[in-house]
C-alpha cells in the first residue's frame, strides 16, 4: 500500500501526517498502540477513502511542546490540523486514546464531522472514586496488561530484537507521552462526560467483546451519552478490535460509513 508521510506545523508543534488511499477524506486517529498506519484495517479503508492519520503530539514523529499536558490540548491541535488541511464535513474514526481525542474534538466543533466511529474509546469515568472504570495499565505488570488488551496476546507482541534503536526509542516515547497525557486524572477528562451531548454527527461505538481494559458495560454507558449513538461489538477481539480482527471491524465500519463515502 502506498502511503506518504509529511509534517504540518501547528503553532509550535510539528505534526506527522500519514496519508494513503484515494477517495473522500477520512481521518483515522490512532490508538496509543500506534500501529494503525499499517495492516489490514487501514488497507481496507484506503480502498474507499483517502485515509489521513495524524500522530498526536509526542507520538510517532510528532513533536511535543512543553505546554501540552492534556488530551484537550491534543484535540485542539487536531482541529487546527483539519483547518490547515482544509478538511470539513469529514468522517472520523478514533480508537482507544484516539477515540477519546475524537470525542473531545466533536464536542468542540460538532458540525465539522459527518460520522463518528469510536472504537473502545476511553476518556470518561462513571464509577465511584474507589472503583475502576479502566484497568490501570501502569499499576499492573506488562504481561497482565497485554492479556487485558488482546484477546490473542500473540497479536499484540512486538519483537524488539527486530527493531532498530530508533524504532525502539519511538515506542518508548509513545509510552511516555501516553503517561504525560493520561496519568492523572487516569485516562479520563472529568468534564467530557458533561459535554458529549453537544455531538451531532451520527455516531457508532464499536467494542471488542474481550476488552479487558474497559468492558462492554463501560462502552454501553459511554454510548448512552451521545444522542442516537449505535453500539456494536466485534468478536474475537480485545481493546483493539480494528487491529486484532480487522475484517469484522471493517464490515461494520463500511456499512456505517456507506452514506458518507458515496
Amino acid at each position: 500500500m502506498a502511503a506518504n508521510t509529511g509534517f504540518v506545523t501547528i503553532g509550535d508543534a510539528e505534526i506527522e501526517v500519514t496519508r494513503c488511499g484515494t477517495g473522500p477524506a477520512l481521518v483515522l486517529l490512532p490508538s496509543e498502540d500506534m500501529r494503525e498506519a499499517n495492516g489490514a484495517f487501514v488497507e481496507g479503508l484506503a480502498r474507499d477513502f483517502e485515509v489521513i492519520i495524524p500522530s498526536p503530539p509526542g507520538f510517532g514523529r510528532s513533536t511535543l511542546p512543553d505546554w501540552m499536558t492534556t488530551v484537550d490540548d491534543i484535540a485542539y491541535v487536531m482541529l487546527s490540523l483539519l483547518d490547515r488541511l482544509e478538511i470539513g464535513n469529514v468522517p472520523v474514526i478514533g480508537a482507544s486514546l484516539g477515540g477519546w481525542v475524537a470525542a473531545e474534538m466533536a464536542t468542540k466543533e460538532p458540525r465539522r464531522f459527518s460520522r463518528l466511529v469510536l472504537i473502545d474509546p476511553v476518556g470518561v469515568k462513571f464509577a465511584e472514586p474507589s472503583a475502576r472504570d479502566i484497568a490501570d495499565i501502569w499499576q499492573l505488570s506488562p504481561a497482565k496488561v497485554a492479556a487485558l488488551r488482546w484477546h490473542d496476546i500473540e497479536k499484540g507482541k512486538r519483537d524488539t530484537k527486530a527493531m532498530s534503536d530508533n524504532e525502539v526509542a519511538m515506542m518508548v516515547r509513545d509510552q511516555q507521552s501516553l503517561a504525560r497525557f493520561c496519568w492523572e486524572p487516569y485516562m479520563h477528562n472529568p468534564k467530557l462526560k458533561h459535554r458529549l451531548d453537544r455531538i451531532t454527527a451520527p455516531t457508532l461505538f464499536l467494542w471488542g467483546e474481550h476488552d479487558g481494559i474497559a468492558g462492554i458495560d463501560y462502552g454501553h454507558a459511554y454510548s448512552k451519552l451521545i444522542s442516537g449513538a449505535a453500539f456494536e461489538t466485534v468478536a474475537d477481539a480485545g481493546h483493539y478490535p480494528h487491529l486484532e480482527n480487522p475484517g469484522a471491524t471493517l464490515n461494520v465500519v463500511r456499512a456505517f460509513l456507506g452514506g458518507a463515502s458515496r
Partner: peptide, 14 residues
C-alpha cells in the same frame, strides 16, 4: 514508570 528514565536509558534497558 514511563517517563521517569530518559528514552535512551530505556532503549539500553530493553
Amino acid at each position: 514508570p514511563p517517563g521517569y528514565a530518559p528514552i535512551n536509558a530505556n532503549v539500553a534497558m530493553i
